[in-house]
Nucleic acid binder design. Structure first.
Lengths: 344, 344
DNA sequence: TGTTCTTTTGTTATCGATAACAATCGTGCG
DNA sequence: CGCACGATTGTTATCGATAACAAAAGAACA
């Protein structure tokens, strides 16, 4: 019995000698069929190789079980981890995920949202809080749950789970000040491409500013990557006022920068400090543990997914969650003990 | 004019004073409407904020524009790159992608395929050629294009683009033999979880076997990761017959293993050789370039996507493509020149 | 000017389910 | 014994599009 011609609900109904509604009810597990007939029907459906059509089902219900998720990139394990954190919870709730990579481009995100809306998704998940102008307007009107993830804002489109990037940067800045660093440099990619990184940089700058220290900046015109860090660090080391600590956009760049420093014959952390962001797993196997801020990616995903599932089911409790982060003091900055905090 | 109550094709038709079929034709860009009315209709549709329903459209056409892609994991940049390679081509052809991570679990893949079929996807993409038994049977019958990616087989379900992992392993084995290595060890994860890695291992073993050398094996019960390589290398170095070259499942494990060697006070490549697989970008910024096999991930994805698009449009030319790979001699194995190939 | 062919436009059935309401069946109770 | 109510089952309309066929309008030609 190959399903040469796909069997549909009607065929099952005929075979079972019941109406299609009974089949529909039986297979969806909703109320309104006796246990006896439900068992008979679902047995028959299995046996006949019945495959329901989500297209038809979703059309009739005017909503699908698709959760559409947009992230900037999958090359950064961070987003893979966030997605991983969401997926299990969503799958458990019978929701399918569809993933887009916007490549840090708001217009791409906007175009994708337009396309996704044609699928009547159960919910929409966006990375960050910076969107193309038309997007906000579009989504605030819709009654579909929208989750903005990874960054926080006082006025989310709908729901929001993330970390406070400005505070993260400031915290790290204070930490570095405490360790005696006085010539910090930030190494990132082209201004504005990664708004979260910009906010961290601003936080960092604000911390140093309180000590009347200016944060130097080096920008590489590339995607956030090992290579970008490598190049950025190389350029930073050539600055007239050579920095005593390099704060990278994230761990990836920091790893790439590390080799630049070694190539330049600089000892880490003796001659120069290196700081990343995220606390990737690779850190667990490095000889010299990177000083970084550890972000709760998987937990963030899971939290967001739980809130989404609740919202989809009509329960709307909390709307905004700021997740805690933790500085990993690491070994690529000098430890407090040995710091002789030289005035400059 | 917010689309409080979603405008549908009928509303546009009424507004334009034409039938819904004219609107349908006009907006899809199919033949059968004059240029004048097409322009008028699509202008009106824009203005009214009309958003077509893919659910309805796909139901009527009995096929969606969804291409469903299953990969083992997104934590490995390799799969992110393959997906990246496909996406652009698919998007260009008006196809949407939906991604699953099976976590190297055939049953999860099988369950996902069942779920995806309910969406009438335009095509299905699977990683590798090893599937749950029911999957092959299920898909060979279906008339939907199916692409098996990343590995090659003489008898694909439908289409197949990949590399010959056995040959890759054998090639590397010969290379290492030529460099004088005589005590090789393979470091992987639990047997069978990653079938491609097993085939590479077998290729490696077969090369060494021809020189009457046995390949030792170390298995770590974990996901392929930096940490797994770290632990595997540590264990390999403790073997009674200490290996002179460690062949890791992939670059990730090799990077993790590198620190083990350094921690053990072994010089690379002086005391021990390290070999990876894939040629990840990180290799471009390492002080010591990893000896590895470079795989054409993005190109593979692009090639597969092109073939899929053709198949979806009804053109079916080539069905099987084996992509070339290249050994990157790197600096974590001794160079031919300095090798004194000591007999053991 | 009438006929035929080609374009353009419209009508109706259909895709495969679910929602809302209608009908039937038992059973408890006065 | 008969009525009413809850549990089960069925009927019809609908979701929002496309396919297939039908009709009308122009263009070309004798």
């Amino acid at each position: 019995m190959q399903d040469r011609k796909a069997v549909k609900i009607e065929d099952v109904a005929r075979a079972a000698g019941v109406s299609i509604m009974s089949v529909s009810r039986a297979l969806r597990g909703v109320d309104g069929v006796s246990e006896a007939t439900r068992a008979r029907i679902s047995g028959l459906a299995d046996q006949m190789g019945y495959v329901p059509s989500r297209l038809a089902g979703s059309l009739a219900q005017a909503t699908s079980n698709l959760v559409a998720i947009s992230v900037p990139t999958l090359f950064d394990a961070v987003f893979a981890e966030i997605i991983g954190g969401m997926r299990e919870t969503l799958l458990h709730a019978g929701l399918e995920t569809i993933i887009e990579t916007s490549d840090y481009n708001p217009d791409r995100e906007a175009a994708w949202i337009e396309r996704m809306i044609t699928w009547s998704p159960a919910a929409l998940v966006l990375s960050g809080i910076d969107h193309a102008p038309e997007v906000e307007e579009r989504l605030r009107g819709a009654d579909m749950p929208v989750m903005e993830l990874w960054d926080v804002t006082a006025r989310p489109i709908d729901m929001n789970v993330g970390i406070d990037h400005f505070a993260v940067g400031r915290e790290m800045g204070r930490h570095l000040l405490g360790l005696g660093y006085r010539r910090p440099a930030f190494i990132g990619i082209t201004q504005g491409r990664d708004p979260r990184a910009e906010r961290r940089m601003q936080g960092l700058a604000s911390a140093f500013e309180q000590a009347d220290i200016a944060l130097q900046q080096v920008r590489v015109d590339a995607a956030p990557s090992f290579e970008a860090g490598h190049e950025g660090a190389t350029r930073a080391l050539a600055l007239p006022d050579r920095p005593d600590v390099l704060c990278f956009l994230n761990d990836h760049l920091a790893f790439g920068g590390q080799t630049s420093c070694e190539a330049a014959g600089l000892a880490v952390p003796g001659d120069i400090g290196l700081v990343g962001f995220n606390g990737l797993n690779i850190n667990n196997v490095l000889r010299r543990r990177l000083t970084t801020t550890v972000t709760p990616r998987a937990l963030m995903g899971k939290t967001a997914a739980r809130m989404l599932v609740a919202a989809i089911r009509g329960v709307r409790a909390e709307k905004r969650v700021t997740m805690p982060v933790m500085i990993d003091a690491g070994a690529t900055t000098r430890s407090r003990l040995t710091s002789g905090a030289p005035g400059d």
